[in-house]
Simulated scan of single mutants.
Amino acid sequence: MVAVWVLAVLVLHHLGPLHAQEKVLTYVVAIAPFVLLGLVVWRRHRQDSVSDPVEDDAAL
């Protein structure tokens, strides 16, 4: 496991610092899937609650 971290540090050191555009792209690629997943779950929950309000009351 330590070898993986050493390799990662060496690669990052070799590549140098990221430009501003690369930083933004990295953050978007890292965070966007979670934001999209959250929106999908929220929308499905909203659709389910609107389509079957009787089932929600019966579950309580």
Rank of each mutant, 00 (worst) to 15 (best):
S51N: 07
V29Q: 05
Q21Y: 02
D52G: 01
V24T: 11
V54L: 13
P53K: 01
L37A: 09
R46P: 00
D57Y: 09
P33E: 00
V41I: 15
W5F: 13
L39R: 03
W42G: 02
A8L: 14
V9M: 13
L15W: 10
D52S: 12
V11D: 01
Y27G: 02
H45E: 14
R46T: 08
M1C: 08
D48K: 12
A3G: 05
L60M: 06
Q47H: 05
L10Y: 08
V29N: 02
G16A: 02
G16F: 03
L15Q: 12
V28I: 15
F34Q: 04
G16P: 04
V50A: 14
L12R: 12
A30L: 14
M1P: 15
G38R: 03
H14W: 15
W42C: 03
D56M: 10
P33A: 02
L60I: 04
V6N: 06
L18W: 05
P17D: 07
M1I: 08
V4K: 11
M1A: 14
I31D: 01
V29D: 00
I31Q: 02
V24W: 02
L7R: 09
Q47G: 00
L39G: 15
V40W: 09
P17T: 10
A20M: 05
L60T: 09
A30F: 05
Q47Y: 00
W42Q: 07
A20G: 07
K23Y: 05
E22C: 01
L7A: 15
H13N: 08
H13C: 11
F34K: 02
R43F: 15
V2A: 12
L25V: 01
A59P: 03
P17W: 06
A58N: 09
V2T: 11
V50S: 10
P53H: 02
V4Q: 06
L12M: 12
